[in-house]
Design a protein around this nucleic acid. Structure first.
Lengths: 132, 132
DNA sequence: ATAGTGTTCTATCAAATATAGAACAAGTAT
DNA sequence: ATACTTGTTCTATATTTGATAGAACACTAT
């Protein structure tokens, strides 16, 4: 298990890196709805971090509506697609980022190009690899 | 002085809130190239935080190429528009945000709409207010 | 000279991060 | 039933970050 890359020299918190990696996996169709994530202990052992750090990442993902907890199957991918909330979150997440880019002279069309480039990268990835 | 709003109950660091507010001011044309920012001590006193916290925000803004230090005028807005770097930064800043939105079912066109909505809000603001 | 720039140094306190070990209720496997 | 695994919760500790504070420095403006 599996594709997750953790950078121990990063200034980003380990549990946040882990959360992000799982979201990337979802966006790139490497992880799918209904998949079981490894147990907190197992994943912690695999990537060499503490159980509680993985648990925190899972708790965040649950809070954000990406996983649900099935007592028999552990943490299961179950995306709660609250569209209204998602658009709200997107708006606040983008505001600072776009302001910064705009100040730096990145044009509207260039911003749209970057967005498309990122979105296209999801579809180019093959989603058939059984990663978990 | 002036439009800056700090939320002491936010989980976001004060110096980062301050940095963001100044970038918002730039994007919304409330602060302009060549404007002097208040001194670290003065701004700290105005918004009720420590001098070193303001200094850290200024240091970050300098590091990111938004202000330069003029010994006679203090911190002066001077946007170093390194387009290549700005697009790179935009790309990495957007990757997690867009992955999250994409997982939540926000479509490509909806994302572009949010981007345009944010960018349009900059142009709607009048930039004639002498804020500093 | 006096006062004001940003900056740098030490210091302290609170909070966040990561680690560790132990235990719990619930479910699975044998 | 027994043993094991699931996420979760509790206490505890070490490290780092964020925010505060006071002092001082080199430089500039008046």
């Amino acid at each position: 298990m599996f594709y997750i890359q953790i950078d121990f020299n990063s200034d980003e918190a380990l549990y946040m890196q882990l959360r992000n990696q799982i979201i990337y996996g979802l966006a790139n169709d490497v992880i799918h709805e209904g998949d079981s994530l490894p147990s907190v202990r197992q994943l912690a052992d695999t990537i060499g971090i503490n159980m509680h750090t993985v648990n925190k990442a899972y708790a965040v993902l649950r809070q954000e509506g990406f996983v649900k907890l099935d007592r028999r199957r552990g943490a299961v991918i179950s995306v709660d697609a609250d569209k209204m909330q998602a658009v709200k979150d997107l708006y606040s997440d983008l505001s600072v980022v776009l302001a910064k880019a705009s100040c730096k002279g990145v044009s509207r069309s260039e911003i749209h190009d970057v967005v498309d480039k990122i979105l296209n990268s999801y579809e180019e990835e093959d989603g058939q690899t059984d990663a978990v």
